[in-house]
Design a protein around this nucleic acid. Structure first.
Length: 1014
RNA sequence: GCCGGAGUGGCGGAACGGCAGACGCUGCGGUCUUAAAAACCGCUGGGGGCAACCCCGUACGGGUUCGAGUCCCGUCUUCGGCACCA
C-alpha cells in the first residue's frame, strides 16, 4: 500500500493501522464467502446473539475471537469457510426494551445490532456480513412459519421411526383406525368405524394427538410479570421465572406445542454421533430421561361390603379406556409380586371413579388441596408424604392380591401413566409412604450381599443360648443381654432351628436376607401378605397393643435393623413365583414376556421429556400461521400467503388477560374465508427458540426468497462443523435445533440429521478479582455492579490484536476465569517484540550467542506444528505461548547472528503468517511493510516439514530409584545399550548407587535411564 | 439424593505414565538514563546448606508401576445440571 511506506523507525501503533486495514478489508469484501464450490468447506458458527442495548463486553469476545481465529486459519488452509453472524431479534428482552424506551422494537433491534456489528468489526472479526440475518424480519420468519406448517402437517410413525405427512395417517385411520400404530397400552385407540363416523371437529381432536405441532389444553407456567406463558425449562427450580424472576403461577390455557417427545429415542441415540462436551451430552440425556420398563394392567377389584363404588358417570362418547383397568408404568416389573398397593396422581382421570362413597369427601378435599399446592415448588427433601385412601381396590395381576388404591401427590400425572404400583420394600418413596400410612411391605428382591441380622432381647431366651450360638459358630455381640447376631441369609433356617428351643418368651427374627419370624412355638417365613398378617398378629398379642399395621412397621422401630430393612438393588427375586432366583436383568425381561403372553402388560420405553410449549402471549414473535373458524376448526394459511406479517401496533403492552396484544387488533385478527365464513387468526406468537432452531441453515443461502435455502447450498455447507457458545443453552436451544433438524430430515428438506458436528462451550469471563474487607471477591460482570469491561476501552488502550491475543491466552477455553487487567499489556509487550524483530532485527542487537540456521529452522517448523495442533484442539492459550516462545527464540537467533540468513527470512515469514489468525491487523501491516503485498489473509498456511522439526540431540534423564540424578545430551538415535553404558559412567549416578546392588536398569530410548538399586 | 466437571506456585495456567511449574502476570534485584517511562538482563514453590548439593511438594488416604499431577479404589472440597421421573 502506498500509505504504508516502510518506515524502520515506526513503533507499533495499533490505532494507526487497525482502522486502516478494517476499512480496506470491508471495501474489498475480503471475507465474503463464495457459494458452494469444489473446495472442502468449513462452517464455523457462533451462537447468534440477542443484541442487547448494553453492547458487548470482553466476556462476549471470549466466544467471537477464538472462532475468528479458526475461521482465518481454515481460510489459509484452503477451505471455503462459512463464518456468518446474525441476530436473535424476537423475544421478550427486545419487546420489554421497546416498551420501556417507547420505540418500535424493529427500530431498536436494528440500532442494537448495528452497535454489536461495530464492536465485532472493532475487534477484527471476519464475518461475511453479506449473509447477516435477523430472525424478526419477514424474509426470515417466512420460513419459521413454513417449518411450523410442516410440523403441523406431519405425524410421527413409530413403525417407520420417522415423521410422515398427516394425510397418510388420515388414510390409515379410515382403513384400520389406530389398531396398527403400535400405541402404548395407555394410549386411547380409535377404530376405523369411529374415525369414519366422526365429525370434522372430532377428527381434528384425534389428529391433534399425532401432529408434530398441535394446540392442546395445558396447565402451564404463567409469568405474572412478563404476562406470558413459559416453557418448563424457563422456570427455575425455586419456582421463579428465569428472566423476570417472578414467582410462576399455574394456569390452564390452550397452548401450541411441538411434539418433541416423539423424537425422544432418536434425540438420545444420535448423541452418540456428535463430538460435543460430555457434560452437554449428559445434560441432554438426563433431560430426555430415557427409561426402560413396562406398562402393567391392574384390574379393579369388587368393592367390599358397604364400600359401594360411585356410579361412574360417563359421557355418551365412551372413553375407550375402560374404567375397570388401571395401567401403571414401572421400570421394575421384576418387583411386581411385591406391589402391595397402588397410587394414583391427584390429577388422574380415574380418581373419581375408583373412589368409594365413604371416601369421596376426603379424596375430593385432597385433590383440591393438591391442585393449589401444585403452584408452589417445595424442595423435595422437605416434603412429608401425603395421601388419601380412595376406598377402591385393584388386583395384582400376577398373584391376585387385592390391593388398596391411594391418591397421593408424590405420583406425577406428567410422567408414565400417572399411576404407579407401589413396591414399598424396594422403592424409597413407596417405603416412606407405606410406613407412614401403615401399608404392608413384603420383600421380593434378595440382597446381593446376603447380609442378615437377628436381635435377641434380654429375657427372651434361656441362659444356654449364648454358648449354643458360640458352639455353632455365629458371631454376635452382647450388650447387657441384648444379643445382636450377624449371619448370612443362607443360615437363616438353621439359625431358627437352633434358637427357637431357647426362646422363653417373645420372639426374634432374621432380618435382611432369609427373612424369618421366630416364635417359641413356630418359625414363620416372611414371604407374603398372609404371613405378614400372621406375624403382626402374634406381635400385637405379645406386645399387648392394638395397632401394628405390619411386621415391617415393627422392624422399622428397631435401630439394629435400620440398614437392612430396605434396599433398591437389582438382584434375584424371592417370593415371586415363576421368576424366583433369576438374575436381576433376566427377571425383568422374563416378567415382561410373562405379562405380554397373558395380555396383562407390555414392555415400554419411557421418557421424562415433555412436549415443547411454543405459545407466547406477546407481540414480538413469529406469528403462528393458523386461522380458527367459528366452528372451532383450525386452518393453516396457504403457503402462498406466507409470510404472515406482524401488524404495526401502537402499544406493545401485554394484556392482563393472558392474551397477546395481537388479539386487540381487529383488522388483523378477523379474516374473511373464501367460503364466506369468518375466522380469527391465532394470536399467540412463537417463542424465540423456534427462530433459533433453524437459523444455521439459513446462513447457507440467506437471501433466498423462494426456499428455506437451496438443496445444493444446504448439502454443501451443513452440518455446522464447529458450533461455539455458552453452556447455558445446553438443553433448550440445542435440543430444539436437533429436533427440527430431524423433522426436516424425515420430510426430505435437509440431508443431515444432526445440525452441529462439533460443539464447544466457552468459559465465562468474570470481573477482575478485587479485595473487600480482606476477602477476595470474584463476581460476574454486570451493568448493575458497574464492573463491565468493554472491548472498546481495551482496544482504545492496547489495540484489537492485543485484546484478541489476551482473549486466547487468558485461560483454557472452557474454564471460567476472572479478567486480569494486567494481562492485556503482557500480550501487548509480546506484539511489540514481534513488531521489532520482524522490522528491525538489526537494532538493539545485544549479546552474542550461539544459534545455527539449522536450529532456527527447527524452531520454526516445530512452532508451525504446535500452532496447528493446538488450534485443532481448541487450546488457544498454548497457541499464544508457542508463538511467544518462537518470538523469544528469534531474539536469541538474532543475537546469534542469524538475521539476514535464509533461515531468518523463513522464520520471519512464518511468524507473520502464524500470527495472522490471532493478530490480523499487525500481520497485515507487517506483511505489507516487508514488501509482500496484499493480503496476508489470502496466503497459504505455512507447511511444517517434520524432518526439519525433528531434533538431532535429546536430553536424557538419568535416574536412580526414580529420582533424577543427572542429565545427558545424546544423539536422537542412541541405542539402549549406549544409554545404559553412558548412565553407568556418570559420576553422579555412581555416587547414588554407592554400595547398593543394581537390581534392574530401565532404559527408555530418547527419554531416560532408571537404575533400580536396593 | 442422582449425574457430570474441577482441585498444580502470590495469580492465569503448562506438562504422549518419564526432568512438575512451559508461557505470561505480579514481585525483587540489576543495566541504560540527569531522572522517569520504555526496553533489556537476572531471580521469583517450600525447607536445609558457605557451597557442591540434599530433602519435601500437584486437595487428602491407600493401591498399581522401575517410575504417578497423569491410571485404579476410597474420602474431602468446589462448580454446573437434575431432582418424589416409579
Amino acid at each position: 500500500m502506498s500509505d504504508a511506506k516502510p518506515d524502520k523507525t515506526d513503533r507499533y501503533d495499533p490505532t494507526a493501522i487497525e482502522k486502516k486495514w478494517q476499512d480496506r478489508w470491508a471495501a474489498d469484501d475480503l471475507y465474503r464467502t463464495a457459494p458452494a464450490d469444489e473446495r472442502p468447506k468449513y462452517y464455523i458458527l457462533d451462537f447468534y446473539p440477542y443484541p442487547s442495548g448494553e453492547g458487548l463486553s470482553v466476556g462476549h469476545c471470549r466466544n467471537y475471537v477464538p472462532t475468528d481465529v479458526i475461521a482465518r486459519h481454515y481460510r489459509m488452509k484452503g477451505y471455503n469457510v462459512l463464518h456468518p453472524m446474525g441476530w436473535d431479534a424476537f423475544g421478550l428482552p427486545a419487546e420489554n426494551a421497546a416498551i420501556k424506551l417507547k420505540t418500535n422494537p424493529a427500530v431498536l433491534i436494528r440500532r442494537f445490532a448495528d452497535n454489536y456489528k461495530r464492536q465485532m468489526n472493532l475487534i477484527g472479526a471476519s464475518y461475511d456480513w453479506s449473509r447477516e440475518i435477523n430472525s424478526s424480519s419477514p424474509e426470515y420468519y417466512h420460513w419459521t412459519q413454513w417449518i411450523f406448517q410442516r410440523l403441523y402437517g406431519s405425524w410421527y410413525d413409530t413403525r417407520a421411526d420417522k415423521a410422515r405427512p398427516i394425510a397418510e395417517l388420515e388414510a390409515e385411520l379410515a382403513e384400520h383406525g389406530t389398531s396398527r400404530l403400535r400405541l402404548a397400552l395407555s394410549d386411547q385407540q380409535v377404530s376405523a368405524e369411529e374415525w369414519n363416523a366422526a365429525s370434522p371437529l372430532e377428527r381434528q381432536n384425534t389428529l391433534k394427538r399425532f401432529r408434530l405441532a398441535y394446540r392442546g389444553e395445558a396447565t402451564v407456567n404463567w409469568d405474572p410479570v412478563d404476562k406470558t406463558v413459559l416453557a418448563n425449562e424457563e422456570v427455575l427450580p425455586d419456582g421463579t421465572a428465569w428472566r423476570s424472576g417472578a414467582l410462576v403461577e399455574r394456569k390452564t390455557l390452550k397452548q401450541w406445542f411441538f411434539r418433541i417427545s416423539a423424537y425422544s429415542e432418536r434425540l438420545d441415540r444420535d448423541l452418540d454421533t456428535v463430538d460435543w462436551p460430555s457434560r452437554i451430552v449428559a445434560m441432554q440425556r438426563n433431560w430426555i430421561g430415557r427409561s426402560q420398563g413396562a406398562e402393567v394392567i391392574f384390574v379393579r377389584a369388587q368393592q367390599s361390603q358397604g364400600d359401594e363404588p360411585q356410579a361412574a358417570h360417563r359421557p355418551a362418547t365412551a372413553a375407550p379406556q375402560p374404567d375397570d383397568k388401571i395401567i401403571v408404568y414401572t421400570t421394575r416389573p421384576d418387583t411386581l409380586w411385591g406391589a402391595t398397593f397402588m397410587v394414583l396422581s391427584p390429577e388422574h382421570p380415574l380418581v373419581a371413579s375408583v373412589t368409594s362413597a365413604a371416601q369421596r369427601e376426603a379424596v375430593a378435599a385432597y385433590v383440591a388441596e393438591a391442585k393449589v399446592k401444585g403452584a408452589v415448588v417445595v424442595p423435595v427433601e422437605d416434603k412429608e408424604k401425603t395421601g388419601v385412601f380412595t376406598g377402591g381396590y385393584a388386583l395384582n395381576p400376577v398373584n391376585g392380591a387385592r390391593i388398596p388404591i391411594w391418591v397421593a401427590d408424590y405420583v406425577l400425572m406428567g410422567y408414565g401413566t400417572g399411576a404407579i404400583m407401589a413396591v414399598p420394600a424396594h422403592d424409597e418413596r413407596d417405603f416412606a409412604f407405606a410406613l407412614k400410612f401403615g401399608l404392608p411391605i413384603i420383600p421380593v428382591i434378595a440382597r446381593s450381599d446376603d447380609a442378615a441380622r437377628s436381635l435377641l432381647s434380654p429375657g427372651t431366651y434361656d441362659p444356654a443360648l449364648p454358648d449354643a450360638l458360640r458352639a455353632a459358630g455365629y458371631a454376635f455381640s452382647d450388650e447387657g443381654g441384648a444379643l445382636t447376631v450377624t449371619l448370612a441369609g443362607a443360615q437363616a433356617q438353621a439359625y431358627a432351628d437352633l434358637v427357637r428351643p431357647h426362646l422363653t418368651e417373645g420372639w426374634t427374627e432374621v432380618v435382611g436376607s432369609g427373612w424369618l419370624a421366630i416364635f417359641p412355638d413356630a418359625v414363620i417365613a416372611f414371604d407374603s401378605a398372609a404371613a405378614d398378617e400372621q406375624i403382626s398378629s402374634r406381635i400385637r398379642t405379645a406386645l399387648k397393643i392394638d395397632a401394628l399395621p405390619s411386621f415391617m412397621a415393627y422392624l422399622a422401630t428397631v435401630p439394629a435393623y435400620q440398614d437392612l430393612i430396605y434396599h433398591s438393588e437389582y438382584s434375584s427375586p424371592i417370593n415371586s413365583g415363576p421368576i424366583n432366583g433369576l438374575p436381576g436383568e433376566e427377571a425383568i425381561s422374563r416378567t415382561i414376556a410373562y405379562l405380554e403372553e397373558r395380555g396383562q402388560g407390555q414392555g415400554r420405553l419411557n421418557y421424562k421429556m415433555r412436549d415443547w410449549l411454543i405459545s407466547r402471549q406477546r407481540y414480538w414473535g413469529t406469528p403462528i400461521p393458523i386461522i380458527h373458524t367459528e366452528d372451532g376448526l383450525e386452518l393453516t394459511l396457504p403457503e402462498a400467503e406466507l409470510p404472515l406479517t406482524l401488524p404495526d401496533v401502537e402499544s406493545y403492552e401485554p394484556t392482563a388477560t393472558g392474551e397477546s396484544p395481537l388479539s386487540l387488533i381487529d383488522g388483523w385478527v378477523n379474516v374473511a374465508l373464501p367460503d364466506g365464513r369468518t375466522g380469527r387468526r391465532e394470536t399467540d406468537t412463537m417463542g424465540t427458540f423456534a427462530c433459533s432452531s433453524w437459523y444455521y441453515m439459513r446462513f447457507a443461502d440467506p437471501k433466498n426468497p423462494g426456499q428455506l435455502a437451496t438443496p445444493e447450498e444446504l448439502d454443501y455447507w451443513l452440518p455446522v462443523d464447529m458450533y461455539v457458545g455458552g453452556a447455558e443453552h445446553a438443553v433448550m436451544h440445542l435440543l430444539y435445533a436437533r429436533f427440527w433438524t430431524k423433522v426436516l430430515y424425515d420430510l426430505g428438506v435437509v440431508p443431515f440429521f444432526e445440525p452441529f458436528q462439533r460443539l464447544r462451550n466457552q468459559g465465562l469471563i468474570l470481573a477482575p478479582a478485587r479485595e473487600v474487607d480482606g476477602q477476595i471477591v470474584i463476581e460476574k460482570m454486570s451493568k448493575s455492579k458497574g464492573n463491565v469491561i468493554t472491548p472498546d476501552e481495551v482496544v482504545a488502550k492496547h489495540g484489537a490484536d492485543a485484546l484478541r491475543g489476551y482473549e486466547c491466552f487468558i485461560s483454557d477455553f472452557e474454564a471460567a476465569v476472572p479478567w486480569n487487567t494486567d494481562g492485556v499489556p503482557g500480550v501487548r509487550r509480546w506484539l511489540d517484540r514481534v513488531w521489532r524483530i520482524v522490522l528491525n532485527p538489526g537494532d538493539e542487537a545485544g549479546q552474542s550467542g550461539e544459534f545455527s540456521e539449522r536450529q532456527l529452522r527447527r524452531v520454526t517448523h516445530q512452532t508451525i506444528m504446535r500452532v496447528e495442533h493446538d488450534i485443532a484442539e481448541f487450546k488457544f492459550n498454548t497457541v499464544i505461548s508457542a508463538l511467544m516462545e518462537f518470538t523469544n527464540a528469534m531474539y536469541k537467533a538474532r543475537d546469534g547472528g542469524m538475521a539476514g540468513t535464509p533461515a531468518w527470512a523463513e522464520a520471519t515469514e512464518a511468524l507473520v503468517l502464524l500470527i495472522a489468525p490471532v493478530a490480523p491487523h499487525m500481520a497485515e501491516e507487517l506483511w505489507a511493510r516487508t514488501g509482500r503485498g496484499y493480503s496476508v489473509h489470502q496466503q497459504p498456511w505455512p507447511a511444517a516439514d517434520p524432518a526439519l522439526a525433528a531434533e538431532d540431540e535429546v536430553e536424557v534423564v538419568l535416574q536412580v530409584n526414580g529420582k533424577v540424578r543427572d542429565k545427558l545430551t545424546v544423539p536422537v538415535g542412541a541405542s539402549e545399550d549406549q544409554l545404559r553404558a553412558l548412565a553407568m559412567e556418570s559420576d553422579r549416578v555412581r555416587s547414588h548407587i554407592g554400595e547398593k546392588s543394581i537390581r534392574k536398569v530401565i532404559v527408555v530410548p530418547g527419554k531416560l535411564v532408571n537404575v533400580v538399586v536396593g
